[in-house]
């Protein structure tokens, strides 16, 4: 990791101008926690880093929009997200997820944009954000677009973003009546990357489930919705239905073996944690109920 330039633009448009659509050795750096690891190991050898830190102030805000959506600036540190009262009240599952995501020092530095753009399938927030139907706002010299977090990941460490695009904000719809839960399952130590992440969000209470999202991460090459399992939940929330949904989840998940466990074992974890996540979500009060308490 030697001899590269660090550019420090003051505005988003300056930053965009410094990126290069063709050159993979030019990259944005936000918190730098992921990039530093890649540079140290020699996976990434930059010629230019475009630091986003000097534009931080304008892009670290967390706003509540009139429609209840949360708009979170891409440079918001994960710790600020964790602590924000607005996040705790409107999307408590995000704050809960952050508690065991990496460690305090990384959360103090790592940003929402960097977390999403890095596309490591072991990341904890993407499955939760997909379950919550979140989107990212993406900017480039060509203009802006929105991409559902569900569609952001193209594969293992790959996003659909072009080299000269930046995430400018994360938009999280109001959780409303939906109940959500995230389970991080580690197999090597309590504090570790997940072997398996399962996020669920269910709309509706009791047996009247209108929509359910079940998202699996870490065990797959990118976060993936488990649609067959989701469909089964249309039948209600009886124990037998949950068990069938979990079975379907284990069946459909495209699970990979790695240092956290074999594919067969992780499939069992999917079976167990999909049920546990659904139970936790169904048992949890909805956000509005929570706010009223």
């Amino acid at each position: 990791m030697m001899s590269f330039e660090i550019a420090e633009p003051q505005t988003l448009s300056e930053a965009l101008a410094l990126l290069d659509p063709e050159d993979p050795s030019v990259r944005a750096i936000a918190g730098g926690t992921a990039l530093m690891l890649m540079m140290k190991s020699g996976v990434f050898r930059p010629t230019r880093l475009v630091s986003l830190r000097k534009l931080a102030d304008a892009h670290t805000r967390i706003d509540a929009r009139a429609n209840g959506e949360l708009a979170i600036g891409a440079l918001t540190p994960l710790a600020a997200l964790e602590d924000a009262p607005m996040v705790r009240s409107r999307a408590p599952v995000i704050a809960e997820t952050l508690r065991t995501l990496s460690n305090v020092r990384v959360r103090n530095v790592a940003t929402v944009g960097g977390h999403l753009a890095h596309a490591d399938p072991h990341m904890d927030l993407p499955p939760v954000l997909i379950a919550l139907r979140a989107r990212v706002a993406v900017a480039s010299r060509r203009g802006t677009r929105e991409v559902a977090v569900e569609d952001l990941f193209a594969g293992y460490y790959e996003t659909v973003l072009a080299r000269d695009e930046l995430i400018s904000a994360l938009i999280v719809p109001a959780q409303g009546e939906r109940r959500a839960a995230y389970f991080k399952c580690t197999t090597r130590a309590a504090d570790d990357w997940p072997a398996l992440g399962v996020a669920v969000a269910v709309d509706g209470a009791g047996s009247a489930i209108r929509e359910a999202r079940i998202v699996l991460s870490a065990a797959t090459s990118k976060p993936a919705r488990l649609r067959a399992a989701e469909a089964i939940l249309g039948e209600g929330t009886a124990d037998a239905v949950l068990a069938r949904a979990a079975e379907a989840a284990a069946e459909e998940a495209d699970v990979m073996a790695d240092g956290h466990g074999s594919a067969a074992y992780k499939r069992q974890l999917v079976r167990v944690y999909v049920q546990r996540a659904l139970r936790r979500a169904l048992g949890a009060p909805g956000v509005n109920e929570r706010a009223q308490r």
Binding site: R188, A189, A190, D191, G259
Partner: peptide, 27 residues
């Protein structure tokens, strides 16, 4: 509970604290 160097053709495949887990305070 967790430690053990894994070798593949003599090459340690978990040669860092990211993959070789020593006990932390939550363990």
């Amino acid at each position: 509970m967790s430690e053990g160097i894994e070798f593949d053709a003599g090459q340690a495949t978990n040669a860092s604290l990211a993959d070789y887990k020593i006990p932390g305070i939550r363990d």
